[in-house]
Simulated scan of single mutants.
Amino acid sequence: MTASENPGVLRLDAQGVQIWRAGQKPVSIDEVAEGLRAHCIFAVPADRARLTQIEVRSDEHRHLKKSLPFMLEDEVIDPVESMHFSYAPIDDSHYLVALTSHAEMTSWLERLGDQFEGPFFHEALLLPWQPGEVCAVVEAHSVLLRWGEHQGARVEYDLLAPLMDALPAPPEAVIVYGGDQERDLALLPNLSQERAQWRQGDFGTALMLVDSAQGFIDMRQGVFAPSLPLRRWWQKWKPLTIALLVAVVLQVASDMAQYWRLKESNIALRTAIEASYRKANPQGALVDAEKQLDRQIAEYAVGAKGLMFTRVLDRIGRAVSMGGELTLSNINYSDNTGEVRLDLLAPTYDEIEALRERFAAGGMEAILETSSQRGVQVRARLRVTL
Results as ranks from 00 to 15, higher is better:
5 E>M: 10
10 L>G: 07
12 L>G: 05
13 D>C: 09
13 D>Y: 09
13 D>Q: 07
14 A>Q: 12
15 Q>E: 13
20 W>H: 14
26 P>L: 04
29 I>P: 03
31 E>G: 09
31 E>R: 12
37 R>A: 06
37 R>L: 15
38 A>W: 04
41 I>S: 11
44 V>G: 02
45 P>I: 06
46 A>K: 04
55 E>C: 08
64 L>H: 13
70 F>T: 09
79 P>N: 06
80 V>T: 13
81 E>M: 11
84 H>E: 03
84 H>D: 03
84 H>G: 05
91 D>Y: 04
93 S>R: 14
98 A>R: 05
98 A>W: 02
99 L>D: 04
100 T>E: 05
101 S>L: 03
104 E>G: 00
112 L>K: 10
114 D>Q: 14
116 F>R: 11
125 L>M: 13
129 W>P: 02
131 P>R: 07
137 V>F: 04
140 A>H: 09
140 A>C: 09
141 H>F: 13
143 V>Q: 00
144 L>Q: 00
144 L>W: 05
155 V>W: 02
159 L>P: 04
159 L>D: 15
159 L>G: 11
160 L>N: 01
161 A>S: 15
165 D>N: 15
174 V>R: 05
174 V>Y: 02
176 V>G: 00
178 G>R: 02
179 G>T: 14
179 G>L: 14
182 E>S: 14
184 D>S: 08
185 L>N: 03
186 A>P: 03
188 L>F: 00
191 L>S: 13
192 S>F: 00
192 S>W: 01
195 R>D: 01
199 R>H: 12
201 G>H: 03
205 T>Y: 01
206 A>D: 01
211 D>L: 02
216 F>H: 11
227 S>C: 06
229 P>D: 09
234 W>G: 05
237 W>Q: 10
243 A>Y: 10
250 L>H: 02
251 Q>H: 09
254 S>D: 14
259 Y>N: 11
262 L>K: 08
264 E>R: 15
268 A>E: 15
271 T>W: 05
276 S>W: 02
277 Y>H: 03
283 Q>P: 04
286 L>D: 06
290 E>Y: 12
291 K>V: 07
291 K>Q: 12
296 Q>R: 15
297 I>F: 13
300 Y>W: 15
304 A>F: 05
304 A>S: 13
305 K>R: 15
318 R>H: 08
319 A>G: 08
320 V>D: 06
323 G>S: 07
326 L>I: 06
326 L>F: 01
327 T>D: 08
329 S>F: 07
331 I>N: 01
332 N>I: 07
334 S>H: 12
339 E>N: 12
340 V>P: 01
346 A>K: 04
350 D>Y: 09
351 E>F: 04
352 I>G: 00
352 I>W: 04
358 R>P: 04
360 A>Q: 11
361 A>Y: 06
362 G>L: 06
363 G>M: 07
364 M>D: 07
365 E>K: 08
365 E>V: 11
369 E>N: 10
374 R>H: 11
374 R>A: 13
377 Q>G: 00
377 Q>C: 01
379 R>G: 10
